[in-house]
Design a protein around this nucleic acid. Structure first.
Lengths: 164, 164
DNA sequence: TATTGTTATACTCTATAACTATA
DNA sequence: TATAGTTATAGAGTATAACAATA
């Protein structure tokens, strides 16, 4: 992910606009959606990680567990599609979660190649603890966005859908 | 980074809303800004990477080079602040770019602890080639967002600023 | 003492290719 | 033949801690 600028500018002389971090010139970057999408996502992730701190469950595992919680019996294939990852990326994550007793994998009788995923009671507890941090984070971002939330969500969903 | 949901839902029975990837239930996730921020950023990055293909310059290097281009003489410290990374994360990236002849590092006479970064002519050429891909990507995202672009940029900038 | 940057090290996330087992 | 998932392997990106050079 990253940004996407445009024509390169000759040398210095950039015009600043908003100065997100320091007084670094962003030039044309400042008008590009992919750039700011990344900056915002990055800031949001770090803020969330800061909240979670040295918790047992790391931020990266949260979406995975939440999706399993919301879709008990989901297979790895479906889960990988939902998050846009290859199934091989999911294997070590799920193995780790299973080893720690947070998820359960049951071979499906109908198709023994597949495994139905679900959270264990301990997994549900871990998820709820993480959810407390997440809720605080969500509320903070909601407050920043204010009454534009629905419009923002609509735009983000559209970007995701059309670029997938 | 990830998303942040909230209260866990008991078992199945999730209400879907928008079905971004497959027909996976998103439940409360679907109403959370951090979640969709990540999904959109992820989709945007992948779309950009797809465009660039097996190019010499990878997407991850693009923002770094663009910022050096826009701010010739910038130091590693300032650059790391602008992108929210630790200086130690930047070291290998800059070393690689320097080895490939794309950037130049001049020790500053005023403070010999610092190095002034700039693109070489070859670096400028590489950046311009990458910028062509980026422009096409930018235009695609612009088209998706339509006339809401300025509002979206304003929201993303605000999220970045307030969570930093 | 404080700051810029590097080194050593480690961890997370991700992918590709080859593979197993099922279908 | 095609699909679900694993293994082996690799690469990108990031961080912390200890350090060197300089301020």
């Amino acid at each position: 992910m990253k940004q996407a600028p445009s024509t390169a500018r000759a040398v210095a002389t950039p015009d600043e606009s908003s100065a997100p971090e320091s007084d670094v010139h962003l030039g044309l970057l400042d008008d590009l959606i992919p750039f700011h999408l990344r900056q915002a996502q990055n800031a949001s992730f770090r803020a969330f990680a800061r909240r979670v701190g040295r918790s047992d469950l790391q931020p990266g595992r949260y979406a995975t567990m939440m999706l399993i919680h919301l879709n008990p019996g989901i297979t790895q294939k479906t889960l990988s599609q939902a998050t846009g990852r290859d199934t091989s990326s999911l294997t070590p994550v799920l193995r780790d979660l299973a080893l720690r007793g947070l998820i359960e994998r049951r071979q499906m009788p109908s198709d023994r190649r597949s495994f139905a995923l679900s959270l264990t009671p301990e997994g549900e507890r871990a998820l709820e603890e993480m959810a407390r941090h997440a809720q605080a984070h969500d509320r903070q971002v909601d407050a920043i966005v204010g009454d534009m939330k629905q419009e923002l969500l609509a735009l983000l969903r559209r970007i995701t859908a059309e670029l997938s």
